[in-house]
Design a protein around this nucleic acid. Structure first.
Lengths: 239, 239
DNA sequence: ACATTTGATATGTAGAACATATCTACATTA
DNA sequence: TAATGTAGATATGTTCTACATATCAAATGT
């Protein structure tokens, strides 16, 4: 049966380069030996010799791992295992915005999901000081302010503060990373849409409301975004 | 004021290597020229010459970008910009489990946040067929089954199916990536803890309940995990 | 005991050479 | 004429050698 798309049945034959293979082998090595941060690695020349490739190829592979922060190397001292910065590696590919449209949309949805799920952590870790700071940000925004750039910035400040208030640094950075995507999609809106629940409303709920109320409030705040979600978003794309 | 952590204030002095610099320059190049997937890049020798470094260094930098899927290169044809696989690059660093304890905990929280926020997408995109499949998975699990490994697998299957049902492929892969972390932390539990709301209960809510009910149900299902969250989790760690 | 010098060593960088795949163009054949 | 086969040209893939540079360790000098 011919489905009309050759792409899947006869997938592109990708020639694995030596550097690719060495990279994989090195990962296996780290894993199998259960090396922990601080442990030493063999010398470049030794690796090259035992794998039977040139030192150059080994260096290409090492360069990759080094970029991700999985290893560090100093002259004379050799190389050691390091603990990679999870989010750092993510930022590396999200920064340039050549992500395809479908993925952009999916990331946007991911952010909405996070925003709603935030409530529990928020109520667990909120402090007086944080709420006060949040209120300050919320009050800066006047509904009549027409300046688009300012609106965007304020929006980012407010929601960013929320993430920060969760006390989860990884989460905070994750959001930070997703911002450009969010900003990009929002910038497509010609007319700024204001939700039924304002930032100040959310602050008040945070003050003396419940988790459930907050979630409901956030849902209404983001209502116009949710309304735009399509039931079956990712059907085959026609060119 | 001394905050107790030296790490941030006096950051490690890192000697930027040539490959690092070239990598940065190449990223800038891609960004400034606003190159899109499919566009051609200069030849390795040209890059090397215009940057005034050896081809070797250029190749190390290119090797990194190639790993992330930002560029592709074929013999004779040269190099072209590609669209990187967002999640793919993430998996690369999450695979080996040398993530520090704090980050692990934060990722775990991130997963809980997602799990709660999932409801909206789920109710938007659920289908009869999916619910049926989900029910099948839920029924496989008998409360009396003591085999730990099976319990874990079933747990993964169920929650994985939920993510898949959102129709958001990126989200699905993200969860897939987080699984090892989740599995690791759950494996630390000596006695399997069963929530007040079972998988089957969740399926039933999905059938004829509301989003809010589902969220509440999921919250109860994961209750023991939420209960373990600490109010101020990320204070300076004592060694 | 302390400062200085002097190798030894592992990574960082450079340059040249060759291997390999593939595009282009041309020639061959049915 | 169209499909197939052959022959260069070219950009990436790989190897090798040599040297630069930082840094550890031991020897030396005061």
């Amino acid at each position: 049966m011919y489905t009309g798309r050759l792409g899947k049945e006869l997938e592109r034959i990708t020639h694995k380069t030596m550097a690719d293979i060495v990279e994989i082998r090195l990962r296996e090595y780290l894993k199998n030996k259960a090396l922990k941060p601080g442990d030493a690695l063999p010398k470049e020349t030794e690796i090259a010799e035992s794998l039977g490739v040139s030192r150059n190829v080994v260096r290409e592979a090492l360069s990759r791992l080094r970029m991700l922060g999985m290893i560090e190397s100093r002259k004379r001292r050799g190389m050691i295992v390091a603990s990679p910065d999870i989010m750092g590696s993510f930022e590396r590919v999200l920064d340039p915005m050549f992500i395809d449209e479908t993925t952009l949309q999916e990331i946007f949805e991911l952010r909405l999901v996070l925003e709603i799920g935030l409530a529990d952590l928020l109520f667990l870790r909120k402090t007086e000081a944080d709420i006060e700071a949040l209120e300050k940000i919320a009050k800066k925004q006047k509904p009549t302010t027409g300046q688009h750039a300012f609106r965007i910035k304020n929006e980012i400040d407010f929601h960013g503060k929320l993430y920060q208030m969760t006390g989860n640094h990884t989460l905070r950075r994750f959001q930070d990373m997703l911002l450009p995507v969010f900003g990009y999609l929002v910038s497509l809106e010609k007319v700024p849409i204001i939700g039924k629940v304002s930032h100040l409303d959310l602050v008040n709920i945070l003050k003396d409301g419940t988790k459930e109320e907050f979630r409901q409030g956030m849902l209404l705040h983001l209502e116009h975004h949710f309304n735009k979600l399509r039931p079956h978003p990712h059907l085959p794309i026609k060119k």
